[in-house]
Write a protein that binds this DNA or RNA. Structure first.
Length: 299
DNA sequence: CCGGACTCCTGGTTGC
DNA sequence: TGCAACCAGGAGTCCG
Protein backbone atom coordinates (compact mmCIF):
# COMPACT_ATOMS: atom_id res chain seq x y z
CA UNK A 1 0.00 0.00 0.00
CA UNK A 2 1.10 2.64 1.29
CA UNK A 3 2.48 5.98 1.57
CA UNK A 4 1.65 8.50 4.27
CA UNK A 5 -2.03 9.11 3.39
CA UNK A 6 -2.82 5.42 3.21
CA UNK A 7 -1.06 4.66 6.49
CA UNK A 8 -2.82 7.58 8.17
CA UNK A 9 -6.19 6.31 6.93
CA UNK A 10 -5.34 2.99 8.57
CA UNK A 11 -4.21 4.66 11.79
CA UNK A 12 -7.44 6.63 12.06
CA UNK A 13 -9.53 3.60 11.32
CA UNK A 14 -7.71 1.51 13.86
CA UNK A 15 -7.79 4.05 16.68
CA UNK A 16 -11.35 3.57 18.00
CA UNK A 17 -10.99 -0.21 17.99
CA UNK A 18 -7.59 -0.67 19.55
CA UNK A 19 -7.34 2.21 22.01
CA UNK A 20 -7.93 0.74 25.44
CA UNK A 21 -8.35 -2.78 24.11
CA UNK A 22 -6.94 -5.88 25.75
CA UNK A 23 -5.09 -8.40 23.58
CA UNK A 24 -6.84 -11.71 24.19
CA UNK A 25 -5.00 -13.85 21.68
CA UNK A 26 -2.33 -13.62 19.02
CA UNK A 27 -2.04 -15.99 16.06
CA UNK A 28 1.00 -15.94 13.80
CA UNK A 29 0.13 -17.64 10.52
CA UNK A 30 3.34 -16.70 8.75
CA UNK A 31 6.52 -16.01 10.69
CA UNK A 32 7.97 -14.06 7.78
CA UNK A 33 5.69 -11.20 8.74
CA UNK A 34 7.68 -10.95 11.99
CA UNK A 35 10.95 -10.40 10.16
CA UNK A 36 11.51 -7.17 12.03
CA UNK A 37 10.66 -8.64 15.42
CA UNK A 38 13.86 -9.33 17.34
CA UNK A 39 12.82 -12.68 18.84
CA UNK A 40 10.97 -15.81 17.75
CA UNK A 41 7.22 -15.68 17.15
CA UNK A 42 6.56 -17.27 20.59
CA UNK A 43 8.20 -14.24 22.12
CA UNK A 44 5.95 -11.91 20.11
CA UNK A 45 2.88 -13.90 21.14
CA UNK A 46 3.80 -14.21 24.82
CA UNK A 47 4.66 -10.58 25.34
CA UNK A 48 1.62 -9.30 23.48
CA UNK A 49 -1.02 -11.58 24.94
CA UNK A 50 -2.72 -9.84 27.86
CA UNK A 51 -1.36 -6.42 26.93
CA UNK A 52 -3.51 -3.30 27.07
CA UNK A 53 -3.18 -1.09 24.00
CA UNK A 54 -2.98 2.66 23.70
CA UNK A 55 -3.86 4.99 20.84
CA UNK A 56 -1.99 4.27 17.60
CA UNK A 57 0.64 6.73 16.38
CA UNK A 58 2.39 7.27 13.09
CA UNK A 59 5.50 8.77 11.63
CA UNK A 60 5.92 8.67 7.87
CA UNK A 61 4.87 5.21 6.75
CA UNK A 62 5.41 3.61 10.16
CA UNK A 63 2.49 2.95 12.46
CA UNK A 64 2.75 1.80 16.06
CA UNK A 65 0.48 0.93 18.95
CA UNK A 66 2.04 1.57 22.37
CA UNK A 67 1.43 -0.93 25.13
CA UNK A 68 0.25 0.32 28.48
CA UNK A 69 2.42 -0.20 31.57
CA UNK A 70 5.09 -2.05 29.66
CA UNK A 71 8.58 -1.77 31.09
CA UNK A 72 10.62 -0.97 29.15
CA UNK A 73 7.95 0.88 27.26
CA UNK A 74 7.17 -0.84 24.04
CA UNK A 75 4.86 -0.80 21.07
CA UNK A 76 3.59 -2.97 18.24
CA UNK A 77 5.27 -1.52 15.16
CA UNK A 78 3.49 -2.02 11.87
CA UNK A 79 4.91 -1.34 8.44
CA UNK A 80 2.74 -2.14 5.45
CA UNK A 81 5.58 -2.51 2.96
CA UNK A 82 4.21 -2.75 -0.57
CA UNK A 83 1.06 -4.74 0.02
CA UNK A 84 0.21 -4.81 3.71
CA UNK A 85 -3.31 -4.27 5.01
CA UNK A 86 -4.74 -3.98 8.47
CA UNK A 87 -8.36 -5.06 8.61
CA UNK A 88 -10.90 -4.83 11.42
CA UNK A 89 -13.16 -7.85 11.51
CA UNK A 90 -15.76 -9.38 13.73
CA UNK A 91 -14.42 -12.38 15.67
CA UNK A 92 -16.08 -14.99 13.46
CA UNK A 93 -15.56 -13.33 10.06
CA UNK A 94 -13.78 -15.46 7.46
CA UNK A 95 -10.09 -14.86 7.07
CA UNK A 96 -8.50 -13.46 3.96
CA UNK A 97 -6.28 -16.06 2.29
CA UNK A 98 -3.20 -13.86 2.72
CA UNK A 99 -3.69 -13.16 6.42
CA UNK A 100 -0.35 -13.43 8.21
CA UNK A 101 -1.08 -12.35 11.79
CA UNK A 102 -4.31 -12.14 13.77
CA UNK A 103 -4.85 -10.16 16.97
CA UNK A 104 -8.01 -10.87 18.91
CA UNK A 105 -8.92 -7.88 21.02
CA UNK A 106 -11.43 -7.10 23.69
CA UNK A 107 -12.53 -3.48 23.77
CA UNK A 108 -14.06 -2.23 27.04
CA UNK A 109 -17.08 -0.77 25.22
CA UNK A 110 -17.27 -2.33 21.78
CA UNK A 111 -16.47 -5.87 22.85
CA UNK A 112 -14.60 -8.43 20.78
CA UNK A 113 -12.86 -7.34 17.59
CA UNK A 114 -10.30 -8.96 15.34
CA UNK A 115 -7.36 -7.19 13.75
CA UNK A 116 -6.05 -9.05 10.70
CA UNK A 117 -2.66 -8.23 9.22
CA UNK A 118 -2.89 -9.23 5.57
CA UNK A 119 0.11 -8.98 3.27
CA UNK A 120 0.55 -10.44 -0.17
CA UNK A 121 4.25 -9.81 -0.69
CA UNK A 122 5.37 -9.97 2.93
CA UNK A 123 7.54 -6.88 2.62
CA UNK A 124 5.52 -5.46 5.47
CA UNK A 125 5.85 -6.56 9.08
CA UNK A 126 4.74 -6.40 12.65
CA UNK A 127 7.16 -6.31 15.55
CA UNK A 128 7.36 -5.55 19.24
CA UNK A 129 9.89 -2.83 19.78
CA UNK A 130 11.12 -0.61 22.59
CA UNK A 131 10.03 3.00 22.66
CA UNK A 132 13.05 5.27 22.92
CA UNK A 133 13.69 8.97 23.30
CA UNK A 134 15.07 10.75 20.26
CA UNK A 135 16.87 14.02 19.81
CA UNK A 136 14.20 15.60 17.65
CA UNK A 137 11.70 15.69 20.49
CA UNK A 138 12.97 14.43 23.84
CA UNK A 139 9.53 14.48 25.40
CA UNK A 140 8.22 11.87 22.99
CA UNK A 141 9.18 8.24 22.68
CA UNK A 142 9.10 6.41 19.38
CA UNK A 143 10.00 2.83 18.44
CA UNK A 144 13.73 2.25 18.02
CA UNK A 145 13.03 1.00 14.49
CA UNK A 146 11.57 4.39 13.64
CA UNK A 147 14.22 6.52 15.32
CA UNK A 148 16.14 7.16 12.09
CA UNK A 149 13.00 8.27 10.22
CA UNK A 150 12.52 12.01 9.75
CA UNK A 151 9.30 13.73 10.70
CA UNK A 152 6.73 13.86 7.94
CA UNK A 153 5.39 17.03 6.32
CA UNK A 154 1.98 16.73 8.01
CA UNK A 155 3.56 16.50 11.47
CA UNK A 156 2.94 19.75 13.35
CA UNK A 157 6.53 19.62 14.55
CA UNK A 158 8.00 19.13 11.10
CA UNK A 159 10.81 21.64 10.77
CA UNK A 160 11.10 23.35 7.40
CA UNK A 161 14.39 24.85 8.46
CA UNK A 162 15.78 21.42 9.19
CA UNK A 163 14.43 19.99 5.97
CA UNK A 164 15.95 22.69 3.80
CA UNK A 165 19.24 22.39 5.65
CA UNK A 166 19.28 18.61 5.14
CA UNK A 167 18.42 19.09 1.49
CA UNK A 168 21.26 21.56 1.04
CA UNK A 169 23.69 19.16 2.68
CA UNK A 170 22.85 16.38 0.24
CA UNK A 171 24.59 15.96 -3.07
CA UNK A 172 21.83 14.15 -4.88
CA UNK A 173 18.82 14.68 -7.09
CA UNK A 174 15.40 15.74 -5.98
CA UNK A 175 13.26 12.64 -6.32
CA UNK A 176 15.88 10.56 -4.58
CA UNK A 177 15.80 13.11 -1.77
CA UNK A 178 11.99 13.05 -1.53
CA UNK A 179 12.09 9.27 -1.21
CA UNK A 180 14.84 9.38 1.41
CA UNK A 181 12.90 8.74 4.62
CA UNK A 182 15.71 10.14 6.74
CA UNK A 183 15.27 13.58 5.11
CA UNK A 184 11.50 13.74 5.03
CA UNK A 185 9.22 10.78 5.61
CA UNK A 186 5.95 9.50 4.24
CA UNK A 187 6.56 10.19 0.55
CA UNK A 188 6.70 7.23 -1.81
CA UNK A 189 6.78 6.82 -5.56
CA UNK A 190 3.25 8.03 -6.29
CA UNK A 191 3.28 11.22 -4.27
CA UNK A 192 6.87 12.04 -5.24
CA UNK A 193 5.84 12.02 -8.89
CA UNK A 194 2.68 13.99 -8.16
CA UNK A 195 4.42 16.67 -6.10
CA UNK A 196 7.19 17.07 -8.67
CA UNK A 197 4.62 17.40 -11.43
CA UNK A 198 2.73 20.04 -9.46
CA UNK A 199 5.94 21.97 -8.76
CA UNK A 200 7.14 21.53 -12.39
CA UNK A 201 10.41 19.99 -11.32
CA UNK A 202 12.19 17.14 -13.12
CA UNK A 203 12.90 14.11 -10.97
CA UNK A 204 16.62 14.25 -11.76
CA UNK A 205 17.11 17.92 -10.88
CA UNK A 206 20.11 18.23 -8.55
CA UNK A 207 18.98 19.33 -5.09
CA UNK A 208 21.80 21.85 -4.83
CA UNK A 209 20.47 23.62 -7.93
CA UNK A 210 17.05 24.24 -6.37
CA UNK A 211 16.65 27.77 -5.11
CA UNK A 212 15.08 28.19 -1.70
CA UNK A 213 11.81 29.52 -3.19
CA UNK A 214 11.56 26.52 -5.51
CA UNK A 215 12.32 24.13 -2.67
CA UNK A 216 9.69 25.89 -0.61
CA UNK A 217 7.18 25.60 -3.43
CA UNK A 218 7.94 21.90 -3.80
CA UNK A 219 7.38 21.28 -0.10
CA UNK A 220 4.07 23.12 -0.36
CA UNK A 221 3.03 20.80 -3.21
CA UNK A 222 4.12 17.76 -1.22
CA UNK A 223 1.92 18.87 1.65
CA UNK A 224 -0.94 19.67 -0.65
CA UNK A 225 -0.92 16.34 -2.47
CA UNK A 226 -0.58 14.35 0.77
CA UNK A 227 -3.44 16.28 2.38
CA UNK A 228 -5.73 15.88 -0.63
CA UNK A 229 -5.00 12.18 -0.89
CA UNK A 230 -5.72 11.77 2.80
CA UNK A 231 -9.01 13.62 2.43
CA UNK A 232 -9.99 11.20 -0.34
CA UNK A 233 -9.08 8.12 1.64
CA UNK A 234 -5.77 7.40 -0.09
CA UNK A 235 -4.87 5.97 -3.49
CA UNK A 236 -6.14 2.54 -4.54
CA UNK A 237 -5.35 0.92 -7.88
CA UNK A 238 -6.81 -2.43 -6.95
CA UNK A 239 -7.62 -4.33 -3.79
CA UNK A 240 -4.03 -3.95 -2.61
CA UNK A 241 -4.78 -0.79 -0.74
CA UNK A 242 -7.89 -0.58 1.39
CA UNK A 243 -8.80 1.00 4.70
CA UNK A 244 -9.46 -1.04 7.84
CA UNK A 245 -12.94 -1.85 6.57
CA UNK A 246 -11.71 -3.09 3.23
CA UNK A 247 -12.81 0.00 1.28
CA UNK A 248 -10.73 1.62 -1.46
CA UNK A 249 -9.56 5.23 -1.54
CA UNK A 250 -10.49 7.61 -4.34
CA UNK A 251 -7.34 9.59 -4.96
CA UNK A 252 -6.31 7.56 -8.03
CA UNK A 253 -8.88 9.66 -9.93
CA UNK A 254 -6.95 12.79 -9.01
CA UNK A 255 -3.52 11.67 -10.19
CA UNK A 256 -1.96 13.97 -12.78
CA UNK A 257 1.25 12.15 -13.64
CA UNK A 258 1.61 8.82 -11.83
CA UNK A 259 0.55 5.96 -14.08
CA UNK A 260 -0.60 8.39 -16.78
CA UNK A 261 2.15 7.73 -19.33
CA UNK A 262 0.85 8.28 -22.85
CA UNK A 263 -1.94 10.56 -21.64
CA UNK A 264 -1.86 14.32 -22.07
CA UNK A 265 -0.44 16.45 -19.30
CA UNK A 266 -3.44 18.10 -17.62
CA UNK A 267 -1.58 21.40 -17.71
CA UNK A 268 -0.06 21.61 -21.17
CA UNK A 269 -1.30 18.65 -23.18
CA UNK A 270 2.10 17.13 -23.88
CA UNK A 271 2.10 13.36 -23.35
CA UNK A 272 3.24 12.16 -19.95
CA UNK A 273 6.36 10.00 -20.10
CA UNK A 274 7.44 7.11 -17.90
CA UNK A 275 11.12 6.51 -17.35
CA UNK A 276 12.80 3.95 -15.15
CA UNK A 277 14.62 5.64 -12.32
CA UNK A 278 15.85 3.94 -9.16
CA UNK A 279 14.40 0.72 -10.52
CA UNK A 280 10.88 2.07 -10.56
CA UNK A 281 8.73 4.20 -12.81
CA UNK A 282 9.05 7.97 -12.85
CA UNK A 283 6.17 9.76 -14.52
CA UNK A 284 6.54 13.34 -15.68
CA UNK A 285 5.66 15.89 -18.32
CA UNK A 286 8.64 16.46 -20.62
CA UNK A 287 7.53 20.02 -21.29
CA UNK A 288 6.58 21.26 -17.83
CA UNK A 289 9.30 19.37 -16.02
CA UNK A 290 12.78 19.88 -17.44
CA UNK A 291 16.10 19.74 -15.70
CA UNK A 292 17.15 23.31 -15.53
CA UNK A 293 20.30 25.11 -14.71
CA UNK A 294 20.12 26.84 -11.38
CA UNK A 295 22.24 28.28 -8.73
CA UNK A 296 24.71 25.99 -7.09
CA UNK A 297 24.69 26.65 -3.39
CA UNK A 298 27.87 27.91 -1.84
CA UNK A 299 28.05 25.48 1.06
C1' DC B 1 28.97 10.38 1.08
C1' DC B 2 26.69 8.57 -2.92
C1' DG B 3 24.52 5.51 -6.21
C1' DG B 4 23.57 1.13 -8.03
C1' DA B 5 22.70 -3.66 -7.45
C1' DC B 6 20.52 -6.89 -4.94
C1' DT B 7 17.51 -8.81 -1.29
C1' DC B 8 13.18 -9.89 0.97
C1' DC B 9 8.09 -12.08 -1.60
C1' DT B 10 3.37 -13.14 -4.10
C1' DG B 11 0.15 -12.66 -7.56
C1' DG B 12 -2.18 -10.01 -11.23
C1' DT B 13 -1.46 -8.66 -15.98
C1' DT B 14 0.61 -8.80 -20.46
C1' DG B 15 2.33 -10.86 -24.47
C1' DC B 16 3.61 -14.68 -27.29
C1' DT C 1 -5.72 -21.72 -23.16
C1' DG C 2 -1.06 -22.10 -21.38
C1' DC C 3 2.82 -20.30 -19.72
C1' DA C 4 6.66 -17.26 -19.06
C1' DA C 5 8.04 -12.72 -18.41
C1' DC C 6 7.14 -8.59 -16.37
C1' DC C 7 5.38 -5.49 -13.10
C1' DA C 8 3.96 -3.49 -8.47
C1' DG C 9 2.61 1.64 -3.41
C1' DG C 10 9.06 -0.15 0.37
C1' DA C 11 13.36 -0.24 2.46
C1' DG C 12 17.48 -2.35 4.17
C1' DT C 13 22.37 -3.92 3.19
C1' DC C 14 26.50 -4.28 0.71
C1' DC C 15 29.96 -2.83 -2.36
C1' DG C 16 32.69 0.11 -5.43
Amino acid sequence: MPELPEVEVVRRGLAPAVTGSLVRAVTVLDERSLRRHAGPSEDFIDRLTGARLRAPERRGKFLWVPIEHAAPREAIVVHLGMSGQVLLRTPDAPRDRLTRIVLELDHPEHGAVRVDFVDQRIFGSMALDDLVRTLDRPAQRIPSQVAHIARDPLDPDFSERRFFAALARKRTTIKRALLDQTLVSGIGNIYADEALWAARIHYDQPTESLSRPRARALLAEVRSVLAKALAEGGTSFDAQYVNVNGASGYFSHSLNAYGRQGEPCPRCGRLIVREVFMNRGSHFCPRCQRVRAGRVSAN
